[in-house]
Design a binder for these strands. Structure first.
Length: 604
DNA sequence: AAAAAAT
């Protein structure tokens, strides 16, 4: 148990200062006490060898295709194996499997320099994940695994798993990885912070290493084999950083592309060859229109925060990328959708992108357990600032060595973020802010300054609501409560990560009456204390189907194919499409903001 | 109604 941040910081600093840097230490042995070293890796023959050795493996994809044939044929059409030609590599011209690996930066180098280092550094409290409820549905669901050893991800990836200090898979990984390795499409609903990124990255990396792929047909155009899309630039960066760790010295190249940053550097990276492209939609569309990226060789598509990616703001861009460019259709590529929340109407939309998929729901680790203590306080608009100050004062008293616990304050608008940041600073609270009107440089600086504890208060819009893994956030304050309860779920999920505890406080007033019911339900479901006044609000505003009514089970979501309003005697009906619109009456309290002729707001 | 996402 770490004593305090400041102690951890100084301990880490001492450690770093004491370490001699004179002789070469292999990356995986750096910064580690001898007792925790992984076993010697004399047998580690290098990634290129692994790739060659396994080149006969047919790839992970099984199952039929509704297109031109089995997925594997897609590969053999070009007849170009990874080992052919002069250099042996998928992207021979620009580096391939072998060249450039010496230059590959060690993505683990900074890990132990992190100020908040902890003794047993798997980082994840697995006890919090025991006996977590899991629901799967779909045809022939591959059985889960209990250890990484059971999954043959290959020697190089196994090594990276050890470097990441992953001891055993999280529940979502136990289920999702076998499904993905079996080549199945997947819709996975699991709390962020429970290891989703690794759950889709490991199978993709493994599949790319084992598969044989045609040579890129044109120079100066990037032909990624896998595409990972996310809704914010910072999240794409985070996924990229993670994926680089998982792919370290495997020869699999991961490149990130997002807006707000100079495109030329991204273009250069792409030209060096890319197997896995992590991107935000806007920049990717730009690259596609410039014909600098082609999706024709995509074999794996992953949407992180998939419900957000398919909501009204993003859907057109996603459809353009996935359906209107040159990406292979469902059944040819493998598609994986991940999110902590999956509203039914979004699940329905997602059918367009999936083929005979498996639905997986892992009980929420954070938001519906006591790991996050949720409080709701009645605060008038005009009292919010002074109320926040009271909270921060109380926290400052609890902090150690004058350092405050990290507090993430969510507001509704960019303007509101600016003005609250300014006000906090004026009142002696070290705050910074992040929102979409700031430059990318400012955004990244704010995030970094917050993460390091330099500025322990971060005021944020929903740009920071999803996916961002910021360790040691002790407190999430919903200064403004979001209108969509799913956003609330994602926001409070910034604390209580990796099985750790956290606190979430929301400032409720009349303006939030539309979410009173769903908020009360959610809190009750999570065994939180629901104030009597909130229950009264909930009862008052609950009649009439609200968009915010959720399934009412203990899962983060439920396979909508099981919903009677969508079901016509078998899940296969949904792939016919004929009864889709007629079956879309949403009697379960979900109005229909999407699709169909009458696109009406469900909450006007 | 707001936020995000290309220049």
């Amino acid at each position: 148990m770490p004593t305090s941040w400041a102690d951890s910081v100084s301990a880490a600093e001492n450690l770093a200062a004491a370490r001699p840097r004179s002789s070469y230490v292999p990356p995986h042995l750096r910064n580690r006490p001898p007792s925790t070293d992984p076993p010697a890796h004399a047998s580690y023959a290098g990634p290129a060898a692994s790739v060659q050795d396994q080149s006969g493996y047919g790839g992970p994809n099984v199952g039929g295709s509704r297109w031109t044939g089995p997925r594997n044929d897609f590969r053999s059409g070009y007849g170009g194996g990874g080992g052919r030609g002069s250099g042996g590599g998928w992207n021979n011209r620009t580096g391939g499997w072998d060249r450039g690996r010496d230059r590959e930066a060690n993505p683990f180098a900074d890990d132990d320099a992190e100020p908040f280092v902890e003794p047993e550094n798997s980082g994840i409290n697995f006890d919090a994940y025991e006996d977590i409820p899991v629901e799967t549905s779909g045809d022939n669901v591959p059985p889960p695994v209990n250890t990484f050893v059971e999954i043959d991800l290959g020697e190089a990836v196994n090594l990276n798993i050890r470097r990441c200090k992953y001891v055993k898979p999280t529940p979502v990984q136990k289920h999702a990885i076998p499904i993905a390795l079996a080549g199945r499409d997947l819709m996975a609903c699991a709390q962020t912070g429970s290891g989703k990124t690794a759950a889709f990255c490991f199978p993709i990396i493994s599949g790319i290493m084992r598969g044989q792929f045609p040579r890129p047909p044109r120079p100066r155009v990037a032909f990624p084999l896998a595409l990972i899309l996310s809704p914010t630039r910072e999240l794409s960066c985070q996924i990229h950083d993670e994926a680089k760790k998982f792919a370290y010295q495997t020869g699999v190249r991961v490149v990130v592309a997002y807006g707000g940053a100079p495109i030329n550097q991204q273009l250069r990276e792409l030209e060096r060859g890319v197997h896995i492209l992590v991107a935000t939609p806007g920049r990717l569309v730009d690259l596609l229109e410039r014909a600098r990226v082609s999706l024709q060789m995509i074999r794996y598509l992953a949407l992180d925060e998939a419900d957000r990616m398919l909501d009204m703001g993003f859907e057109p861009q996603i459809r353009k990328i996935v359906q209107q460019m040159d990406m292979p259709p469902p059944g040819v590529r493998q598609t994986m959708l991940f999110s902590a929340t999956f509203p039914k109407e979004i699940q329905r939309l997602a059918l367009d992108f999936l083929s005979s998929y498996i639905f997986l729901a892992v009980g929420r680790v954070g938001s519906s357990t006591d790991l996050i203590v949720q409080r709701v306080e009645y605060v008038q608009e005009t009292d919010k600032r002074s109320h926040l100050m009271d909270l921060l004062h109380a926290q400052r008293a609890n902090g150690s060595h004058g350092k405050q616990a990290l507090t993430l304050v969510f507001v509704e608008t960019k303007k509101g973020a600016d003005s609250l940041e300014h006000w906090l600073c004026m009142n002696g609270f070290p705050a910074t802010a992040i929102h979409g009107d700031r430059t990318q440089q400012e955004r990244e600086y704010a995030l970094k300054s917050f993460k390091t504890g330099n500025t322990p208060i971060l005021v944020a819009t929903d740009v920071a609501a999803r996916g961002l893994d910021i360790p040691h956030v002790a407190h999430v304050v919903n200064f403004d409560i979001p209108n969509d309860i799913d956003d609330y779920v994602h926001r409070i999920g910034r604390t209580g990560r990796a099985g750790k505890s956290g606190l979430a406080t929301a400032f409720f007033n009349e303006n939030n009456s539309s979410v009173a019911r769903s908020l009360a339900d959610l809190m009750q479901e999570a065994n939180q204390e629901v104030p009597a006044w909130l229950s009264r609000y909930a009862a008052r505003s609950s009649h009439g189907g609200s968009k915010n009514r959720r399934g009412g089970n203990r899962f983060g979501g439920r396979d909508f194919r099981k919903d009677s309003s969508f079901n016509r005697g078998g899940v296969t009906d949904y792939y016919g499409g004929a009864n889709m619109s007629s079956g879309y009456g949403a009697p379960g309290g979900y109005a229909a903001p999407y699709g169909g002729a009458g696109v009406t707001s469900a909450w006007d």
